[in-house]
Design a binder for these strands. Structure first.
Lengths: 110, 110
DNA sequence: TCGTATACCTTGTTCACTTAGGTATTCGCG
DNA sequence: CGCGAATACCTAAGTGAACAAGGTATACGA
């Protein structure tokens, strides 16, 4: 995942979020993650493409070939109904988890 | 780690944090994590003990046999100087990472 | 005495991510 | 025109943390 090997498991929710505003291709998803996190998160392609196929197999994403902004062939992804539900659930899970970890790291005594 | 397979990679920093107030044994660390996160995070023993050995091999923790509050044999862990430095660094990494993910999940458009 | 909590451990498996490649097209620059 | 960089896709091998599922042993209360 990140440039300095960080926390496994957040890639899926980030992908679902990136796709939530309508069709976007894989390469664009990688760019979106990098940009919106101001280079804090960097997705390796070797993690990105397998993740997309995984999410498609799970029925959370649908794919369709199209033409990118630069006039090139690109595979566009879009959320299924299940994908939209999973996005909501995953965001909630992330918030709960992040809150719990922060709670622990913020305690000032045993 | 958590009850419903969550984000890998945060166990180490939580352990370092638990140990930061002085000697504590492995079982107590597991209990501390569960309690301070109000059951949100549940550490499996199959993850906890290997993690402790890993951190010890890395020179971040030191171990010593002692006697627990209940009068039983227990292995107590304590931070090394390197461990204290790594704790600080890891907490910063976590905050940066959590902030970046939250940033992405909070955006309302592409 | 019998279950529960405490306290430690390992072995096998799974699976996300890293590393490290590969193909092909388009575009800008010298 | 040539050539590197960016775009856009992909996979195979290896790593390593966490999970699942066991195991040992002691202390304590019912």
């Amino acid at each position: 995942m990140a440039g300095s090997d960080l926390f496994v498991g957040t890639l899926d929710v980030l992908i679902l979020k990136a796709v939530s505003w309508g069709p976007i291709h894989g390469y664009g998803i990688g760019r979106w993650i990098r940009q919106t996190t101001r280079d804090a998160l960097q997705v390796q392609e070797g993690a990105l493409y397998p993740a997309l196929h995984r999410l498609e197999r799970k029925g959370l994403l649908e794919e369709e070939w199209g033409v990118s902004e630069t006039g090139r062939e690109a595979k566009y992804y879009r959320l299924t109904t299940a994908g939209r539900g999973e996005l909501r659930a995953a965001v909630t899970r992330w918030r709960d988890y992040a809150h719990a970890v922060t709670l622990a790291l913020d305690t000032t005594g045993r």
